[in-house]
Amino acid sequence: MSRSLDGQVVVVTGAARGVGALLARKLAARGARLALVGLEPDELKQVAGALGGGAACWTADVTDRDAMAAVAAEVLAHFGRIDVVVANAGVATGGPFLDSDPDAFDRVIQVNLLGSVTTARAFLPALIASRGYLLQIASLAALTPAPMMAAYCASKSGVEAFAHSLRAEIGHLGVKVGVGYLSWTDTDMVRGADQDDVLRELRAKLPWPTNRTYPLEPAVERLAAGVVRRSPHVYAQWWLRGMQSVRGALPSVIGGPLGRREMRRAAPALAGQAGVRRGLVGRGGEADESARAAGHHTQ
């Protein structure tokens, strides 16, 4: 490690499972004190309990401005400062746009994009005071479009642009802003998406190395190292850095011959699923839907 996070207070959203939970563990191992935010109180408490070191958790919907403002105030009162915020909370849905569930489609935009905006709005005053660091988790989906992933690609392209704009706007105040990029990584979200036969087969036809599912541990280790360095760009898989230099050509390739060919191949299977409304994928998606049905809150 180039330097530790001893005593620094780190907030991680979407911390109940997957990338968020493991990242919290890796940051705690580097000496950070963790404030975990998510929608699953029991899971959050388990993660916090395993971390030790006075980790604490808050249950909140990242799209709720009042709830997130209250969480930010409570975290600041509890720890006395906030040094790092990782905007990690996210959900996904997939399938043909015209067959998509409009509520699920909109929810992906709300959580991934507007939830990140709400997170930044709530925590930036504290980060300005500490001259801290905001890491926005984006995706390979911000670098290249993909058929049947319109909501996710739009949301992740949006948060990438949002984070870059913030970096330019608040850098003179001493706050650093980073963007974290992950390809398909072994999480509940990706496993949930793979339950759809058409989506799984389409993904398998993507060019290498974008067609693989990558292990969680090394990906999150790279994110943790990026937090320590306060990096402007953090790549969870090494090859994603190289995608930056060719991203301008990717819409023409994916949206052109490659996309048309694979969608023609998928057409018979999609015809058999016509009218099927796909909701949010994975256990995190289920948790989001359950929390909204029950009425979100903070605690």
Rank of each mutant, 00 (worst) to 15 (best):
G174C: 03
H172I: 08
C153P: 04
A219Q: 05
D194G: 00
I170K: 06
M189I: 13
L223M: 14
V179W: 04
Y214I: 04
G174I: 02
S183E: 08
P145E: 04
S165C: 12
G178K: 03
P207L: 11
M149E: 03
Y181N: 14
W184I: 00
A219R: 02
E221F: 03
A163M: 13
P147Q: 07
Q195V: 00
D188Y: 01
A154G: 13
P145W: 01
I170S: 06
T213S: 07
F162N: 10
A163V: 14
V177I: 14
S157W: 10
P215A: 09
D194V: 03
R222L: 02
C153G: 03
T213A: 06
V159C: 05
V159Q: 11
P215F: 00
S165N: 14
A168E: 12
Y152H: 11
R200G: 09
L143Q: 10
E160A: 12
K156R: 14
A224Y: 01
K176Q: 15
D186R: 11
G174N: 03
I170F: 01
L143C: 10
P218A: 12
K205P: 00
V159K: 05
R167I: 04
F162W: 11
T213P: 04
S155V: 03
V220Q: 09
L206I: 02
V227I: 15
T144I: 14
Y214T: 00
V175L: 08
P147A: 07
A151R: 06
G178I: 05
T187M: 05
T213I: 15
V177Q: 05
C153Q: 03
E169I: 08
T213R: 13
S157C: 13
T187N: 09
